[in-house]
Each structure stands twice: as C-alpha cells, then as structure tokens.
Amino acid sequence: MKNSINEYVDFLKNDLGKDIATTLFERFKELILSGKLPPDSVLPNENVLSEMLGIGRSTLREAYTALAVLGFIRRSKAGTFVVPIENIVSIAPFSFTVANSDLNDLLEFRVMLESESASYAAKRANDDDIKNIEECYINMIANKGDINKFVDYDTSFHIMLCYASHNNLIINTMLAARESFEKSIRSTLRKSLIKNPRAIDVTIEFHGKILDAVKSKDYRTASAAMKEHISYVNLTVKYASE
C-alpha cells in the first residue's frame, strides 16, 4: 500500500517536547486509531523518517519499538506496516481493549464485574472497608445538588466496594476499566441525571441497599442490588445517548 505518512510529518514533528519518543508514540497511536494511517500503510524506515522529522534515529527506534510491542505496527524485512485495529485490540493490554470497546459491551461487562465485586465485598469487607464505602455514600447524599461531585462520590463508592472484595484480580480489572468507564459513561450519566433528577434519588436508594447488604454480609442481596442498580444506570445512559 502506498506510503501515506508524508501529509502528517508536520503533525508528528511539531513541538515534540522533552520526551520525544513518548510524544511520537502517542501521535502515531492517534493517527492509527483514527484511521488516518489505514491498515497496512507502509511507514518509512528509521533512517528516512528520522531525517524527515529532524530527530535522532535512536529516538525514532524507541517510538517504533513501543508501537510494535503494543501491537500498533509490525516490523519485518519487508518493511514497517500499520496493524488493523481489530488485531491491535486482540493483543493489546486490557486497559486499551476496554478503552476501544463498544458502549454496549462496556455496560454489559460492568454488570458482571460489579455484581461479583459487591458479592465478595459482602463476604469479606472489614470495618475500615465499610467505613470507606459509607463515607462515599454519605457524601453522595450531601452533594446530590451538585452533579459533578455526586458522580465523583458515586464513582468512589464503587471503587471502595471493589477494594472491599479483597480480590486482586477484581480490583485490578476495575482499575484498568475505570478510566474507560468514566470517559464512555460519565458524561452521558451526567446528562441523564440532569434530564431526570429523580434518577439521583433512585441511585442513592440503590447504593443504600448495597451498603446495608455489605454491612449485614448478605452477599446475595448485595449482588442482586448491584445488578439492578447497574442495569438501571445502563438504561439511563442508553436513553441519554440517543
């Protein structure tokens, strides 16, 4: 396929800052994920592109190596090629996979993850865990008139609940997915809460049920309440995004 990098040289080399390799990595990633560098595009070899960008060959090699390790490009004797996005996702770190997932997939995944998180939290939460979860709940109620703060404490409630599961895989999965959940869902959730203020009271009620179940170590109710809560959130998010 014809090399299509020439029109993006100015974008790549403008204001590279101190960490040139990292900046180049991020800019190449943006070009690839946006489709501006389509699958199987041929990238220039290190000698040619480093000269085009006015940087050292070793610096470009560092950026190319990072792109190759994370699956954005493939390198061979035949040249350096852009990898199709679906192939990038299949070998990329989990956080990248989540970040590039469909909204419906994210919402369904969240139901599974958080209902199990609530179940294990009810079984394993200690006094400090419950104190942290309850503090988030109290702050949600105190800030129900401020959408941004309300959503912040809502998010913290779920993170604290996750820590209370004392399952490192659940915790790490939640943390890896957190940024993507927030980017994909947070702004839409704010819109839905503004459109439907009653949803704030419903959300508080769900969190109260979950907290009570965790306190009483009722893992079945904790899981069911969380599943019902996330399903409700999913419906409001889908409605607000239409």
Rank of each mutant, 00 (worst) to 15 (best):
S231H: 00
N139P: 01
K2S: 13
S41T: 13
N132L: 09
V151C: 12
T188R: 14
S165C: 07
A78K: 04
I171N: 13
R190C: 07
S231F: 06
N132I: 00
S184M: 10
F81Y: 05
M226T: 09
A224C: 01
I133H: 15
N47M: 03
N148Y: 09
A142L: 15
K149A: 15
P93Y: 14
G71S: 03
L37G: 02
G56P: 04
Y137Q: 12
A118L: 08
E86C: 13
R220K: 12
E7I: 08
K217G: 00
E86T: 09
K29I: 01
S90P: 09
S119W: 14
N6F: 06
L193N: 04
T23C: 07
S156D: 10
H207D: 12
T221Q: 05
D19M: 11
T80G: 01
F81C: 10
K13P: 01
I5V: 15
I171P: 15
V237W: 06
I85T: 13
M1C: 15
F81I: 02
S223F: 15
A122Y: 08
G71V: 07
L16T: 02
I171R: 15
D127N: 06
D105N: 03
D127F: 06
P38F: 09
T65W: 01
H166K: 10
G56W: 04
G145C: 12
M112Q: 11
S165D: 09
L161G: 15
I230E: 09
T203A: 08
N148Q: 14
T97C: 07
F157W: 02
T221E: 07
S95K: 03
G71W: 02
H158G: 10
A63W: 03
T221V: 01
D154E: 10
Y219V: 00
D201Q: 05
Y239H: 14
S156W: 08
V83H: 07
E205I: 00
F109L: 11
L43Q: 02
E51L: 11
A142R: 10
L60K: 05
I185E: 14
D152R: 14
S76P: 05
M226C: 12
K123I: 04
S76Q: 02
F11Q: 01
P38A: 12
E205L: 00
H229F: 02
L60H: 02
D19W: 09
N143R: 05
K191P: 02
M112L: 10
N6H: 08
K209F: 10
V237P: 14
A63R: 00
K131E: 08
M174E: 13
K149S: 15
I159S: 13
I141M: 15
P84C: 07
K144D: 13
A66K: 05
A177H: 12
K131F: 12
V98W: 08
D128M: 15
Y153K: 08
M52W: 09
R124L: 06
A222V: 01
K215T: 00
K209Q: 11
S180P: 03
L33H: 10
N139F: 03
M174V: 02
V214R: 09
A164T: 04
A125Q: 06
D40S: 12
E228V: 03
G54H: 00
L16Q: 05
L107P: 07
P93Q: 10
I88G: 11
A92P: 06
V214M: 11
R124K: 11
R75D: 04
M174F: 15
D105L: 01
H229S: 02
N45H: 09
I171A: 14
S165Y: 13
Y8W: 04
Y8L: 02
E135M: 06
N104F: 07
A125P: 04
